[in-house]
């Protein structure tokens, strides 16, 4: 089964959480729930800003070192976009439950492959942001995230946006980047073998995909760039639809 590269989202569907979102893309599905600002245990309390707790739960089994690594990336990222100084001595809890991962062809081996644990990072980041938006958490900016795989064999070089797990694993290098809505790079995770020129090309491609610069969208010379793939547009339209739904009684 080929997973859809088009993102889809379900907003505010968990009734007990302050905010929630279920995001699917590329065969990954993540449920995100945000609670906060709530009381924080005394020993974790920060006097000048809110404590952010990120919990990543895998689809099967209990979390291990891989999840801790993802949590630490998410934590440092979310701390930059949530206005933490607005909620001193509070806790903002972000729980991300992975419910679906793409099928792995290498049966009989480990459930999650080394290195490819990064493939889920865009889905986790996107879910966290959508859940935070659903919780009406004051944010400095929102972020959008895209993964790109470079397949290079000596001469030719191919950039694949939103690669499937197979493409991700066989790529010569993989890049996961997240940009703020102002077009600033917030997260970069690049792995494999590449040159600075490759990286800069990926940087510009992802920037165009994440950030709605209208002149870029028309430029078809850059591969994979069109209005459809723009993640910021997706978040905006998803939120817009949700607000319209919530206000249907108004008209």
């Amino acid at each position: 089964m080929v997973a859809s590269k088009e993102p889809s989202v379900l907003l505010s569907h968990l009734h007990r959480a302050d905010g929630s979102a279920t995001f699917s893309q590329n065969g990954y599905t993540v449920i995100g729930a945000v609670n906060g600002p709530i009381e924080v245990p005394r020993r974790h309390e920060l006097p000048e800003e809110a404590v952010i707790e990120v919990l990543v739960r895998p689809a099967a089994g209990v979390g291990g070192t891989r999840e801790r690594h993802l949590e630490s990336i998410l934590h440092s990222t979310l701390r930059q976009i949530i206005l933490v100084h607005n909620f001193p001595r509070h806790l903002i809890q972000v729980t991300l439950q992975i419910t679906n991962t793409p099928e792995n062809k290498n049966t009989g081996s480990k459930v999650v492959q080394a290195g490819s644990h990064l493939a889920i990072l865009p889905a986790l980041l996107q879910t966290a942001v959508l859940a935070l938006l659903s919780a009406s958490m004051p944010l400095a900016t929102i972020l959008t995230s895209v993964s790109i795989a470079i397949h290079a064999d000596g001469k030719s070089r191919k950039l694949i946006t939103h690669p499937s797990l197979k493409e991700f694993e066989s790529a010569s290098s993989v890049h996961i980047m997240a940009f703020t809505s102002h077009g600033e790079p917030l997260v970069v995770e690049s792995q494999g073998t590449f040159t600075l020129e490759d990286w800069e090309e990926v940087f510009e491609t992802v920037k165009a995909l994440c950030h709605a610069e209208h002149n870029r969208i028309d430029d078809n010379a850059m591969q994979g760039v069109d209005g459809k793939g723009n993640m910021l547009e997706f978040v905006k339209s998803a939120m817009g639809e949700k607000v319209a739904q919530d206000l249907h009684w108004h008209t």
């Binding site: 990222t77 790079p185 917030l186 997260v187 970069v188 995770e189 073998t193 600075l196």
Partner: peptide, 25 residues
Amino acid sequence: KKTRILSITKSGGTIVGREEMKDIV
């Protein structure tokens, strides 16, 4: 001869962009 970059990781801020990354490399 040619420098291979094997990994670039960055998180926690928005300052380092293309130009800054060039200097760090």
